[in-house]
Simulated scan of single mutants.
Amino acid sequence: MLVLNIVLLLVTVGFLCWLVFTLAVYALPLLAGVTAGLWAYETGTGAVGGVLLGAVAAGAVAIVGQLAFAFARPFWVRALVAAFFAGPAAIAGYAATLGITRLATPSETWQMAVAIIGAVAVGFTALFRMAGVALPDPRTEIASEA
């Protein structure tokens, strides 16, 4: 029974890590959607109105961010957009990694160290996923064809 518990813990931790890395890019849109939805709910639109407004806000932030990153040519604009997306992803990665390591590691020092490593890893993952959205520079394609 003990071996089964260890195997299930490892499978669960692996699944949660995969989930955090996959959904890291969507931390900022989720934050914007939840904030807009809660604001709408508190102003009297009701639960359905809050959910709808939150979904629209989250979709808008995701689309605008990806379009801004894809079509912006100056490096500083791309870096700023990527930082806006990677910051909340790193915070979410820190919280998720800290929660997972608290299940398995008794030392708080190691918990914090692993959580910081997780935050950096998730932040860079979000950064690289945003960079994968960018369109190639047409001048580079023309130069490579010649």
Rank of each mutant, 00 (worst) to 15 (best):
G44W: 01
G49Y: 04
A62H: 15
W110T: 04
I117Y: 12
T97Y: 01
Q66N: 06
T35I: 15
G49K: 13
A104P: 09
Y94W: 15
F15G: 05
L30R: 02
M112Y: 13
G93R: 06
A113W: 03
L67T: 02
G87I: 04
A89P: 12
W110L: 14
A146E: 11
A90R: 08
G59P: 00
R139G: 07
L135H: 00
T140E: 12
G37D: 04
L135S: 01
G132T: 02
G14N: 03
C17N: 13
A115N: 05
T22R: 08
L31W: 13
A115C: 10
T12R: 14
F15D: 01
Y41V: 11
A92D: 08
F71N: 05
I116G: 06
V34F: 14
Y94L: 14
G54W: 05
T125A: 13
A96M: 15
Y94K: 04
W76S: 11
L16H: 04
R139A: 12
V77N: 00
A58Q: 01
G54T: 05
L38I: 14
P138R: 04
V133M: 07
T12P: 00
W18A: 10
A57C: 10
A83F: 09
V7Q: 07
A62N: 11
A86V: 01
W39Q: 05
P88V: 10
R139M: 04
G46C: 05
P88A: 14
L28K: 02
L8R: 15
G37P: 03
F84P: 03
T35E: 11
W76P: 00
A47F: 10
T105K: 11
A62T: 00
E145Q: 06
M1E: 14
L52V: 15
P106C: 07
T109V: 12
W39I: 15
Q66C: 06
A68E: 04
W110Q: 07
T101D: 03
V61E: 14
L23S: 08
R102Y: 07
W18Q: 05
P29F: 10
I91R: 04
R78K: 15
A96S: 14
A104T: 12
F85E: 00
I100R: 05
P138A: 07
F128L: 14
S107Q: 09
L2G: 10
A131W: 00
L16G: 08
A47L: 15
G65K: 09
G54R: 03
